[in-house]
């Protein structure tokens, strides 16, 4: 009767920002990104990509509660970078990796279909 609508899990409500950003008030170069209506799929690939960046001192994500459909990605960098720069770089790198993967997969599909 009072169950939330199923689409609540993946449709960002009107007036809510998909990505919001909050700097740490005490630590320089530390910040949290709140990603609305995302979960482990995005959280974990972002975290692992951020770990590849040597300027990232800490990167982690959490799903605060299973009924709050958002994740929080926290990043702490050296003074050579910033959380925003590291975050953008991680997204760009992942996007390019996926472009590469898509091409590699499609080439392989062509090769296999020729064999049949």
């Amino acid at each position: 009767m009072n169950a939330p609508d199923r689409y609540e899990r993946f449709v960002v409500p009107e007036g809510t920002k998909k990505v919001s950003y909050e700097r740490d008030t005490k630590i320089i170069n530390a910040a949290s990104f709140t990603l609305e209506r995302e979960e482990h799929t995005i959280g974990n690939i972002l975290r692992m990509q951020l770990h590849r960046d040597p300027n990232v001192l800490f990167a982690g994500y959490k799903l605060p509660h299973p009924l709050q459909y958002k994740i929080i990605v926290r990043i702490h960098t050296t003074s050579q970078s910033s959380p925003m720069q590291a975050y953008n770089q991680a997204i760009n790198d992942l996007d390019r990796e996926l472009n590469h993967l898509k091409n590699a997969f499609e080439e392989e599909m062509m090769r296999i279909s020729r064999e049949y």
Binding site: K18, M84, L94, L98, K102
Partner: peptide, 20 residues
């Protein structure tokens, strides 16, 4: 192939907006 495409789209919408 579609999964790679969907994942790319998901990444694209979590780019911070210009105002952010």
């Amino acid at each position: 192939v579609n999964a790679i495409e969907v994942l790319k789209q998901k990444l694209d919408v979590v780019r911070p907006s210009e105002e952010t």
